[in-house]
Amino acid sequence: MNAKETSIAIWNAMHDEDAQMLKEKIMPGALFVHMGITADRDEEIDIIMKRGIVYDKIDIKSQTENKVGPVTFVYTKMKLTAIVNGNTVVNPFVVTEAYIEDEGSLRLASMSYTRIND
């Protein structure tokens, strides 16, 4: 599975609230940097499972991949509709995802959201 395919699998798992898939595709030390919080892998999964963030609609506009040394970056331009603490929010983002090879497959090491003008 390449980095873009791994990215799509992670986005689908976040939408589907699939904790097992997220644990498989995301490294234990990974960090998620959102607009309002920074969370490690287990905190992020816990937020998703407790429905603190519900990934309602993930409209991916484009994805580009860039390998720099041992790290593969995926830049995902999207419009994300999420329910955050009960409130529906819609934001255009470029999400920067960093992947490294771990135990023979690419796993997410970092995900950062940057809000953009749509």
Rank of each mutant, 00 (worst) to 15 (best):
M1L: 06
M1R: 13
M1D: 13
M1C: 09
A3G: 03
A3K: 01
K4L: 11
S7L: 12
I8M: 09
A9C: 07
I10G: 04
W11C: 02
W11Q: 02
A13K: 01
M14S: 09
M14D: 01
M14P: 01
D16E: 15
E17M: 13
Q20Y: 10
Q20S: 14
M21I: 15
M21K: 05
L22P: 00
K23G: 10
E24G: 06
K25S: 09
K25G: 08
M27E: 08
M27T: 13
P28R: 08
G29I: 06
G29T: 12
A30T: 03
L31K: 03
L31I: 12
L31T: 12
F32M: 10
V33D: 03
V33L: 10
H34A: 09
M35I: 09
G36W: 00
G36K: 06
G36V: 02
I37T: 11
A39H: 07
D42R: 07
I45A: 04
I45M: 05
D46L: 15
I48M: 11
I48E: 04
I48H: 08
M49F: 10
M49Y: 07
K50F: 09
R51H: 15
R51Y: 15
G52A: 06
I53A: 05
I53T: 11
I53V: 14
Y55T: 01
D59M: 08
D59I: 05
D59S: 14
D59K: 04
I60G: 00
I60S: 00
I60V: 15
K61T: 08
K61N: 04
S62V: 04
T64E: 14
T64W: 04
N66H: 11
N66K: 10
N66T: 15
N66M: 10
N66E: 13
V68L: 12
V68R: 07
P70N: 14
V71E: 02
V71S: 07
T72Y: 08
T72R: 12
T72L: 10
F73R: 10
F73L: 13
F73V: 05
V74N: 00
V74S: 01
V74P: 00
Y75R: 05
T76P: 02
T76L: 04
K77D: 13
M78R: 05
K79P: 03
K79F: 07
L80E: 09
L80M: 14
L80S: 02
T81I: 13
A82S: 14
A82D: 09
V84W: 11
V84E: 15
N85F: 12
N85D: 15
G86P: 06
N87T: 12
T88G: 03
V89C: 08
N91K: 06
P92I: 06
F93Y: 14
V94R: 01
V94W: 00
V95W: 05
T96R: 02
T96Y: 06
E97C: 07
A98D: 01
Y99Q: 01
I100E: 14
I100K: 15
I100Y: 11
E101F: 03
D102W: 08
D102Q: 12
E103R: 11
E103V: 13
G104I: 09
S105I: 06
S105K: 13
L106S: 07
R107Q: 12
L108E: 04
L108G: 05
L108D: 02
L108Y: 02
A109E: 00
A109D: 00
S110A: 15
M111E: 02
M111Y: 03
S112Y: 00
S112A: 12
S112E: 07
T114W: 00
R115M: 12
I116M: 00
N117R: 10
D118N: 06
